[in-house]
Design a protein around this nucleic acid. Structure first.
Lengths: 104, 104
DNA sequence: TCGGTATTTATCAATTATGTTAATTAACAA
DNA sequence: TTGTTAATTAACATAATTGATAAATACCGA
């Protein structure tokens, strides 16, 4: 599944923080993140590359700025996955107990 | 956020497949996964360790078997996160457009 | 007890990820 | 043009992940 790749890209504290900030603040240029954890420009650039290649963010070029934003589909894909197991986690039961409860 | 750690654990194709199978089939002993991608027992054992330490699965011991199952909270945590951005991805709009649409 | 099953731990090699500094590209503004 | 800003690519070092083999632990059944 390609979802594993999405999770992999989000499984880094810096990249997760980037995505959260883009989700909360909207599109921002790469440079806006340089105040974060003291990450250098090259390191930041590579984090964005990972996020781009995983299809989590899209890039828009404005003059010499690279403006990034989250691709809604990426978050939706995660939501769809977790929702498909909703009955399982919502009940707080393990799957065996769940199967029994559904058999009623 | 510890969610980045959850994503990190799920960001490996083998571990993601393990979790999907546990979600679909319910609790299973570690050995049930040895037919998968030709992963060796030690490799499998370590994948389970990563999943355990990330709080994604729980282990139950039955005789010499280690029976694993998914912790519902782990999937719920992911769901909660994605749902908190539901307005964003459901609209299919970027955040700026969303802010404008909400200002009406 | 002995041999077999289930799983983990120890060790080590190979790969991948991450970060750094230096150099490069592109655009802007004086 | 020249200097500055924004970001990326190149080259390299180090750390973390992953996997394999060998050995260890625990339990079972004859």
């Amino acid at each position: 599944m390609q979802l594993a790749n999405t999770f992999s890209a989000l499984g880094n504290a810096t990249r997760f923080a980037i995505v959260e900030r883009l989700l909360n603040e909207g599109e921002l240029p790469a440079g806006a993140f340089l105040d974060m954890n003291g990450v250098s420009p090259p390191a930041m650039s590579r984090h964005f590359k990972v996020l781009r290649e995983a299809g989590i963010v899209k890039q828009r070029i404005d003059k010499q700025r690279r403006i990034y934003s989250v691709r809604p589909q990426a978050v939706q894909q995660i939501s769809d996955w977790s929702i498909s197991y909703r009955k399982f986690w919502e009940s707080g039961l393990d799957r065996l107990a769940l199967a029994l409860s559904e058999d009623v």
